[in-house]
């Protein structure tokens, strides 16, 4: 059974006076997330990541489509019994102390008194807030809010942890600790689904990623499968215009860098062919650099390709469109 499953899940918000503007926040998202993996949900601002998460948690009603958590439809509150959630920029009951807030969460999660007491101590310890257990949440810093948010998300040892931008507001130590906690969740067979802008961390932790752009899923898959291709760059001292023209069909870019030309191949398997053309033109030495594409490069490439295919600018953030009257 999949931890998360959606089928043509869509959400359109109506905005403004008389609901004349509409914002297509999510457009027919169909995705399955297996159990026991860390899934990174990526996308530029306004791509629909938070909307997807809210739809998965039943906080927002879909315009179209369906979603299931461990096979239970998300509109059924039982779907959330084994789910932990950390919202983006979390805000909690500021009038409560950390321990009281976790106790409230434990009660809503139907945990008995003894289990609550034990898990509150354990989770406070896990997120490094034991010393602040009796401090009011209103006195917490941003990083501490993120930590108490994580504690409430993990309180009932959920099978699925959904985190919206969990790395925001954390210092490098906090990020390191969070990553260790998430990897530990995976080691226990739990599923972690999180959105983030910090692609290096996603690349480090995730088994699979999905990239969302303007409400549409651009790509998804295992990181190993998405980023296997090596980028091959050939470096030469000089190059003629004719050579550039002949190389055009093999290349992603030809750029002048300091004292050499860098020819990045679009298809690494045609390295020999490109090298032969360069050798025909001159006998100068050719330096060959091979490097795997990073998730960041892959992300930008896929987003730009998608924008290009849809004929839209790379900079505008929303899918605002006038209502069909």
């Amino acid at each position: 059974m999949n931890a998360i499953e959606t089928a043509v899940l869509s959400k359109e918000y109506t905005m403004g006076w008389r609901n004349k503007s509409r914002l297509l926040a999510l457009d027919e998202l169909t995705i399955q997330v297996n159990q026991g993996i860390i899934f990174g949900f990526l996308g530029p601002n306004g791509a629909g990541k938070s909307t997807t998460i809210k739809l998965l948690l039943g906080l927002v009603t879909p315009t179209k489509g369906s979603a299931f958590l461990s096979g239970v439809p998300v509109h059924d509150k039982r779907a959330r019994e084994r789910v932990g959630f950390l919202p983006e920029d979390p805000s909690f009951c500021t009038y409560l102390r950390a321990r009281e807030f976790l106790d409230l969460c434990g009660k809503v999660l139907h945990m008995d008194r003894a289990t609550r007491k034990r898990r509150i101590t354990e989770t406070l310890e896990m997120v490094g807030l034991t010393a602040k257990a009796d401090t009011k949440i209103s006195e917490f810093s941003r990083g501490m809010l993120q930590r108490i948010g994580l504690a409430q998300a993990l309180l009932n040892q959920p099978d699925l942890v959904v985190l919206d931008e969990p790395l925001n507001g954390l210092d490098p130590y906090g990020r390191k600790e969070l990553k260790a906690i998430l990897l530990n969740q995976k080691a226990q067979g739990k599923t972690v689904f999180f959105s983030s802008h910090i692609l290096s961390d996603v690349e480090e932790m995730c088994d699979e990623v999905g990239i969302l752009n303007r409400g549409r899923l651009v790509t998804r898959g295992r990181l190993r499968e998405l980023l296997p291709a090596k980028t091959v760059t050939l470096q030469v001292q000089d190059m003629k215009m004719e050579t550039m023209t002949r190389l055009e069909e093999f290349t992603t870019s030809i750029t002048r860098e300091h004292h050499h030309w860098a020819v990045q191949l679009s298809d690494p398997s045609r390295k020999e062919e490109a090298t032969a053309i360069l050798r025909q033109e001159s006998n100068q030495p050719i330096e060959i650099q091979t490097r795997a594409e990073s998730l960041e490069e892959f992300f930008f490439r896929r987003i730009e390709e998608d924008n290009h295919a849809r004929g839209i600018s790379n900079h505008s953030e929303t899918n605002l469109k006038p209502a069909v009257l």
Binding site: L57, T94, C105, V108
Partner: peptide
């Protein structure tokens, strides 16, 4: 407004 309700309703609370 403060989105406290988001945290509470993400749990099995009707």
């Amino acid at each position: 407004r403060e989105r406290v309700v988001m945290t509470l309703l993400s749990k099995p609370l009707g």
